[in-house]
């Protein structure tokens, strides 16, 4: 498979300091776990295992609890995602409105399956059950931007436009 290897981030990475600062800003409060994980996910594009350990230690939260939270939310990923990421909602409303057709279309156009990234790491495809905007079904999130009422005939074009554009 063309999955990027799961990699640790060296402690010397300047972004690690940034992360510790975030933790400090929350005064190491254990209830800030989700916010801290969000920050780590957003800075690194995934949750490096060695940093999850640091978070657990700094916030004084048992390892298994941190890992439980990490694996509970679809938003968090243990593997690096692609340069661009496309998340198709497969919640009830989106499912009924044809989410599967959208997924099939993306898979066919870009040769990428759910939970994977393209061999050149340009595009990652994920799914999630309900992203909370059922009125816009079928909804797709392309790099944090919500594409409402997507159509299988147009989705390839929309993604290509994004891939062509600078991030």
């Amino acid at each position: 498979m063309s999955q990027a290897q799961v990699v640790d981030v060296p402690e010397s990475d300047p972004r690690v300091k940034q992360m510790l600062k975030v933790i400090k800003n929350y005064q190491k409060r254990p209830d800030a776990l989700v916010q801290v994980l969000h920050a780590v996910q957003d800075t690194f594009g995934y949750l490096p295992m060695n940093l999850i350990r640091v978070v657990s230690k700094e916030l004084h939260i048992p390892p298994s609890r941190v890992f439980g939270v990490v694996t509970f939310y679809y938003y968090f990923s243990l593997k690096p995602k692609g340069e661009h990421n496309c998340l198709v909602c497969t919640g009830t409303a989106c499912y009924v409105k044809g989410a599967q057709k959208i997924i099939d279309q993306i898979s066919a156009s870009f040769g990428v399956k759910d939970g994977q990234t393209t061999p050149d790491n340009k595009l990652g495809l994920q799914t999630a059950r309900c992203i909370g905007c059922c009125g816009l079904a079928p909804a797709v999130v392309l790099d944090n931007e919500i594409l409402p009422r997507t159509d299988p005939a147009q989705i390839t074009g929309l993604i290509n436009a994004r891939l062509g554009a600078k991030k």
């Binding site: 999850i52 350990r53 657990s56 890992f67 509970f72």
Partner: peptide, 16 residues
């Protein structure tokens, strides 16, 4: 603790 959700959830020790 518990990892994952629903049918895929499992009991885990530490970081799984």
């Amino acid at each position: 603790d518990v990892r994952g959700r629903g049918f895929e959830s499992r009991i885990i020790a530490d970081f799984d």
